[in-house]
Write a protein that binds this DNA or RNA. Structure first.
Lengths: 345, 345
DNA sequence: CTGTTAGCGCTTTCAC
DNA sequence: GTGAAAGCGCTAACAG
């Protein structure tokens, strides 16, 4: 393995009997420099595999071309989709992405932010943890003039552009669809009240019931804490064993719906005939379960793409930064679990 | 938002009437420096929120405390598990992780490597694409003295430590289990012949048949190209419609097994009574499908942890680098799809 | 114990 | 067109 010492501008300058500054400018095709000089320098650089020392350039320019990306969980279909979109986009613009996860723990998120700030990313993409409200650690970025974009799980406490999915509308469409399928006693297993998405979805649910003049009962709304399969199972049992059981359950997320389906199957309820089930997020699992699960697609990849685009725009244009929020449309995916009337939508 | 200009060592030195080097050393509690000086400097630094300029430090030390991580696919349960382990470990050691994906396309992998090399990561963790054989782009890291660790999908063309799972043994155990369940005509839907893992698994399959004196037929071995659900479906059909159909199918991965299950269900075969099915990788979906899928757990998180540990060790100890490979044990997970005798193992 | 000095590799005025 | 020189912020060898 030939330990090739890297050559520097100085080496080029010395060998070619020019100054370092001329060499530097020649490589950038600076208009001042004679074409001939440019040619010669470039040729020499190429021949000797000159590669600028990025560390030096970054230092000089006070830029790293790295952006930070923090999500609650990495092993998560939706978030990995977002990350994928963000990385692909960043790459296209010459940026690398530093990825970290908070595990939905505030302290971990703070640590992750600090490390990223310390390692001098040029900007930050973040989907906050369930425990984040003030977000002082995120304000540190803004204080240093580094742009931040929030996505998916956001807080209005922070004045940054946000990329979200239209949770309200998604939930509304989901419930409207259930109503269209003839369900009339629709329950909702929702997320924590401190979490914005959860509230939006709950409101969409409400509005849909209201607009269609359907019965609403607070007994039919269950609040998840962990948002996992077990909770779905438990709440489904509570709902179905109650004196006034619902005939459809709209879940905050597919994982919860999975638990619901499991309970319904065990308890002998027929899905979708007796009980309709809707998830949210359209994970891979929705296609795999039996019966397949109707859900709302959140276009994670596009979310990643758009968030990264906005961030990079704001990094590159400190003067006219994009301040607008972006709300992506959702997509209703009808599968077996809610398709009682058996026709394709 | 107070635009706080960052203070530098120079500022501290000037204000405290000491030299920059003294300030620098005091902050590091250099033994040469008087306790009193250290106290004063630290106090001042703290009061004025001194933060060292990482870009300058990196430049000086020629280190970034960033490591690169390249996988074929990000939206992939196994790989995201590995990434999660690697990131958590890196964080613990003060490193950040730059993540990128190759989409199993050689050119993308080369680009990803180049960008990472250019952005001066201190080392690289990589699981190569299906199209990578020589890996010249990876050798560029080694040529610059930057350590590389390969994991999961590896090639022996590159002289780097490797962290893998014992594919041979995993496959052997899987097939042995099938045999123990009374299956005797066991087919294998395998991966490409150029891919090492695929070969290891195929050999484990062979060896298990051989050791138990079971019939082997090349008709029972199908070679996947895309390794997806559709191929599983198609090959299952081919196998079951052939003159001498198998009574069990061992699949290169859970996704393929999913297609197999789907075909078997449609064609009316009872699983596991008539036909046993084994996957590999133990994705989330294995617990979700119906019947649940027996599989081999590859301990992705541990793989990430170990690979990151090795890399960081090798970055920090250029003199005595770890050269050994690490092969993690797999775990047989028995679920419904192969559990014909209905007892727990 | 502390200061002086040199320098990492590059960019960018400012001269000529 | 080109060069000289300064400096980004920090570290470390050397000197005292």
């Amino acid at each position: 393995m030939p330990e090739k010492r890297k050559i520097t501008l100085k080496d080029i300058a010395r060998e070619l009997n020019i100054s370092v500054s001329t060499a530097s400018r020649a490589l950038k095709e600076h208009p001042d420099i004679a074409d001939e000089t440019i040619r010669i320098v470039k040729a020499y650089a190429k021949e000797h595999h000159y590669v600028p020392n990025v560390l030096a350039v970054n230092f000089r320019k006070n830029r790293t071309y790295n952006i930070g990306l923090i999500v609650p969980e990495l092993v998560h279909h939706f978030f990995s989709t977002v990350i994928s979109g963000a990385i692909d986009t960043a790459k296209k613009h010459g940026y690398n992405v530093l990825v970290s996860q908070s595990n939905d723990i505030l302290d971990d998120e703070i640590t992750a932010c600090r490390t990223m700030l310390a390692s001098s990313v040029d900007g930050l993409l973040i989907s906050i943890s369930n425990e984040t409200f003030e977000g002082e650690h995120i304000k540190e970025f803004l204080a240093e003039g580094k742009p931040v974009i929030q996505f998916d799980k956001i807080t209005d406490e922070l004045e940054t552009p946000k990329v979200t999915v239209d949770d309200f509308e998604g939930a509304y469409q989901a419930v409207k669809h259930l109503i269209g399928q003839g369900y009339s006693k629709i329950a909702h297993i929702r997320g924590r009240k401190e979490v914005k998405n959860a509230n939006e979805r709950a409101e969409g649910y409400h509005k849909a019931l209201e607009d269609h003049g359907l019965e609403y009962s607070s007994d039919w709304v269950k609040v998840c804490n962990m948002i996992n399969e077990e909770e779905g199972y438990q709440f489904a049992r509570e709902l179905m064993e109650s004196p006034n059981p619902p005939d459809a359950i709209f879940c905050i997320t597919d994982l919860v719906a999975l638990g619901v389906l499991k309970y319904l199957k065990e308890a002998g309820f027929r899905v979708p005939d007796q009980v309709g089930v809707m998830g949210f997020s359209n994970w891979k699992l929705a296609e795999i379960v039996n019966p397949t699960l109707s859900s709302i697609d959140q276009h994670g990849y596009e979310m990643g793409v758009n968030a990264a685009k906005m961030l990079i725009h704001n990094i590159n244009n400190p003067e006219k930064r994009e301040e607008e929020n972006l709300m992506l449309k959702t997509n209703l995916i009808i599968r077996e679990s809610s398709n009682r009337k058996k026709f394709q939508n």
